[in-house]
């Protein structure tokens, strides 16, 4: 099984991924996460803006998926901390995200994620976070 197949297999079993309605498209080495617009993701009706919590959840899951894809862990990593910058209002449109692993350690890793809508150069939100990789061989030490 490829890492991508393992990731897709895992994502369908994670309830919050299904609740959010997100998916991860992997082409070669690149993964793009997609959050198709849905009315339930709205945070402010009068502004028709996506909820900051929905955007944050999407970014955090994107980071976890990227780490899963690029490592040999069997579970999604655990979040140590995240900082989300809200740069522009998330419109009632699809949201895309890409994650960059700044450092992949044996136990911990640092990830940066950016999300955009119509224009890639106009980021809607960015996230920086630290994650704990669950490696069974380290747990037993």
């Amino acid at each position: 099984m490829t890492r991508n197949e393992m990731l897709q297999d895992l994502l369908v079993r994670v309830p919050i991924v299904q609740t959010l309605g997100m998916r991860c498209d992997v082409k070669g080495d690149d993964m793009t996460a997609i959050l198709p617009f849905n009315n339930k993701l709205i945070g402010n009706f009068s502004l028709k803006a996506l909820h900051g919590g929905a955007i944050g959840t999407f970014l955090e899951l994107t980071a976890m998926a990227q780490l899963f894809l690029e490592s040999d862990v069997e579970k999604l990593p655990r979040t140590i901390n995240i900082t989300v910058d809200y740069l522009r209002r998330g419109r009632a449109e699809n949201l895309f995200a890409r994650a960059y692993i700044v450092k992949m350690g044996r136990r911990m890793s640092s990830v940066r994620v950016e999300a955009w809508q119509a224009e890639r150069s106009k980021a809607v939100a960015a996230m920086q976070g630290h994650f704990l990789l669950s490696r069974p061989e380290l747990e037993s030490q």
Partner: peptide, 21 residues
């Protein structure tokens, strides 16, 4: 429907982000 880990059945951190935000 908020579970982030199907094995330990814990609510995903993003739900806490939503709540605290």
């Amino acid at each position: 429907h908020l579970i982030g880990d199907p094995e330990d059945r814990v609510i995903h951190g993003g739900v806490i982000t939503t709540l605290l935000d």
